[in-house]
Protein backbone atom coordinates (compact mmCIF):
# COMPACT_ATOMS: atom_id res chain seq x y z
CA UNK A 1 0.00 0.00 0.00
CA UNK A 2 1.04 3.61 -0.56
CA UNK A 3 1.25 5.91 2.47
CA UNK A 4 2.45 9.42 3.15
CA UNK A 5 4.61 9.88 6.17
CA UNK A 6 5.86 13.12 7.64
CA UNK A 7 9.40 12.66 8.90
CA UNK A 8 11.55 15.58 10.07
CA UNK A 9 9.11 18.03 8.47
CA UNK A 10 9.26 16.45 5.03
CA UNK A 11 6.38 14.41 3.67
CA UNK A 12 7.56 11.21 2.02
CA UNK A 13 5.50 8.84 -0.07
CA UNK A 14 6.42 5.20 0.47
CA UNK A 15 4.99 1.95 -0.81
CA UNK A 16 5.02 -0.69 1.92
CA UNK A 17 3.31 -3.80 3.23
CA UNK A 18 1.05 -3.23 6.28
CA UNK A 19 3.35 -5.42 8.39
CA UNK A 20 6.30 -3.03 7.95
CA UNK A 21 7.59 -1.48 11.16
CA UNK A 22 8.17 2.26 11.41
CA UNK A 23 11.86 1.67 12.15
CA UNK A 24 12.20 -0.36 8.95
CA UNK A 25 10.71 2.42 6.83
CA UNK A 26 12.97 4.99 8.48
CA UNK A 27 16.10 2.94 7.94
CA UNK A 28 15.44 1.15 4.68
CA UNK A 29 13.10 3.39 2.70
CA UNK A 30 14.22 6.79 3.95
CA UNK A 31 17.85 5.86 4.73
CA UNK A 32 17.60 7.54 8.13
CA UNK A 33 19.78 5.06 9.96
CA UNK A 34 20.04 6.95 13.24
CA UNK A 35 17.24 4.94 14.85
CA UNK A 36 18.87 1.59 15.65
CA UNK A 37 17.42 -1.85 16.22
CA UNK A 38 18.99 -3.26 19.36
CA UNK A 39 16.55 -5.94 20.44
CA UNK A 40 13.59 -8.06 19.49
CA UNK A 41 11.60 -7.51 22.66
CA UNK A 42 10.75 -3.76 22.62
CA UNK A 43 13.00 -3.20 25.60
CA UNK A 44 16.26 -1.51 24.55
CA UNK A 45 15.01 1.87 23.30
CA UNK A 46 17.73 2.22 20.61
CA UNK A 47 14.94 2.78 18.07
CA UNK A 48 13.34 5.69 19.97
CA UNK A 49 11.92 8.53 17.83
CA UNK A 50 9.30 11.21 18.46
CA UNK A 51 5.73 10.70 17.32
CA UNK A 52 3.72 13.91 17.64
CA UNK A 53 6.28 15.16 20.15
CA UNK A 54 6.45 12.07 22.38
CA UNK A 55 9.14 9.39 22.54
CA UNK A 56 8.07 6.00 21.19
CA UNK A 57 9.84 2.80 20.21
CA UNK A 58 9.72 2.73 16.43
CA UNK A 59 10.24 -1.05 16.43
CA UNK A 60 6.84 -1.44 18.13
CA UNK A 61 4.87 0.86 15.82
CA UNK A 62 3.60 -0.05 12.35
CA UNK A 63 4.48 2.47 9.67
CA UNK A 64 0.81 2.55 8.58
CA UNK A 65 -0.15 3.73 12.06
CA UNK A 66 1.71 7.02 11.65
CA UNK A 67 0.19 8.16 8.38
CA UNK A 68 -1.42 11.19 10.05
CA UNK A 69 1.36 11.90 12.53
CA UNK A 70 4.61 13.81 12.64
CA UNK A 71 7.74 11.77 13.16
CA UNK A 72 11.03 13.29 14.27
CA UNK A 73 14.23 11.25 14.32
CA UNK A 74 17.72 12.00 15.63
CA UNK A 75 18.54 13.34 12.14
CA UNK A 76 15.81 15.97 12.56
CA UNK A 77 16.89 17.68 15.77
CA UNK A 78 20.22 19.25 14.88
CA UNK A 79 22.99 19.51 12.33
CA UNK A 80 26.67 18.70 12.54
CA UNK A 81 27.61 22.37 12.94
CA UNK A 82 24.46 23.27 14.84
CA UNK A 83 23.78 20.52 17.35
CA UNK A 84 20.71 20.26 19.54
CA UNK A 85 21.59 21.24 23.16
CA UNK A 86 21.08 17.61 24.22
CA UNK A 87 23.55 16.43 21.58
CA UNK A 88 26.08 19.02 22.73
CA UNK A 89 25.60 17.93 26.33
CA UNK A 90 26.19 14.27 25.43
CA UNK A 91 29.41 15.27 23.68
CA UNK A 92 30.63 17.52 26.45
CA UNK A 93 29.93 14.96 29.17
CA UNK A 94 31.39 12.03 27.26
CA UNK A 95 28.00 10.35 27.53
CA UNK A 96 28.69 7.77 24.85
CA UNK A 97 31.23 5.15 23.97
CA UNK A 98 30.17 2.92 21.07
CA UNK A 99 27.23 5.24 20.35
CA UNK A 100 24.74 2.51 19.51
CA UNK A 101 22.24 3.54 22.19
CA UNK A 102 22.87 7.28 21.76
CA UNK A 103 20.21 8.32 19.22
CA UNK A 104 17.51 6.60 21.29
CA UNK A 105 18.94 7.98 24.54
CA UNK A 106 18.90 11.52 23.18
CA UNK A 107 15.35 11.29 21.83
CA UNK A 108 14.11 9.90 25.17
CA UNK A 109 16.16 12.49 27.11
CA UNK A 110 14.48 15.30 25.15
CA UNK A 111 11.03 13.84 25.94
CA UNK A 112 12.05 13.65 29.59
CA UNK A 113 13.24 17.23 29.99
CA UNK A 114 10.26 18.51 28.00
CA UNK A 115 7.58 16.68 29.98
CA UNK A 116 8.91 16.09 33.51
CA UNK A 117 9.32 18.72 36.19
CA UNK A 118 11.87 18.76 39.03
CA UNK A 119 14.23 16.29 37.43
CA UNK A 120 17.07 15.14 39.67
CA UNK A 121 19.62 12.39 39.05
CA UNK A 122 17.34 9.71 40.46
CA UNK A 123 14.38 10.79 38.32
CA UNK A 124 16.59 11.00 35.25
CA UNK A 125 17.72 7.41 35.86
CA UNK A 126 14.11 6.31 36.21
CA UNK A 127 13.26 8.19 33.04
CA UNK A 128 15.83 6.13 31.15
CA UNK A 129 14.18 2.86 32.12
CA UNK A 130 13.29 2.09 28.50
CA UNK A 131 16.82 2.72 27.16
CA UNK A 132 19.66 0.26 27.64
CA UNK A 133 23.34 1.14 27.30
CA UNK A 134 25.95 -1.59 27.34
CA UNK A 135 29.00 0.69 27.53
CA UNK A 136 28.78 3.73 29.72
CA UNK A 137 27.27 2.57 33.00
CA UNK A 138 24.83 5.49 32.52
CA UNK A 139 26.71 7.85 34.86
CA UNK A 140 27.78 10.34 32.18
CA UNK A 141 24.45 10.06 30.37
CA UNK A 142 22.72 11.16 33.57
CA UNK A 143 25.23 14.02 33.95
CA UNK A 144 24.63 15.17 30.38
CA UNK A 145 20.87 15.28 30.84
CA UNK A 146 21.23 16.94 34.24
CA UNK A 147 23.32 19.70 32.64
CA UNK A 148 20.52 20.41 30.14
CA UNK A 149 17.96 20.50 32.97
CA UNK A 150 20.17 22.96 34.86
CA UNK A 151 20.36 25.27 31.85
CA UNK A 152 16.58 25.38 31.27
Amino acid sequence: MKIEIDVNNTVHEVVIEPNTLLVTVLRENLHLTGAHVGCDTSQCGACTVHLDGRAVKSCAVLAVQVADAKVVTIEGIGEVDNLHPMQTAFREHHALQCGFCTPGMIMQAIDLVTHEDNLDREKIRQGLEGNLCRCTGYHNIVSAIESVVDKT
Partner: peptide
Protein backbone atom coordinates in the same frame (compact mmCIF):
# COMPACT_ATOMS: atom_id res chain seq x y z
CA UNK B 1 3.97 0.70 33.94
CA UNK B 2 6.92 -0.29 31.76
CA UNK B 3 8.88 2.73 30.57
CA UNK B 4 8.08 6.18 29.21
CA UNK B 5 8.02 5.08 25.56
CA UNK B 6 5.60 2.25 26.39
CA UNK B 7 3.44 4.61 28.47
CA UNK B 8 3.22 7.01 25.53
CA UNK B 9 1.55 4.33 23.36
Amino acid sequence: IGDNQVRNR
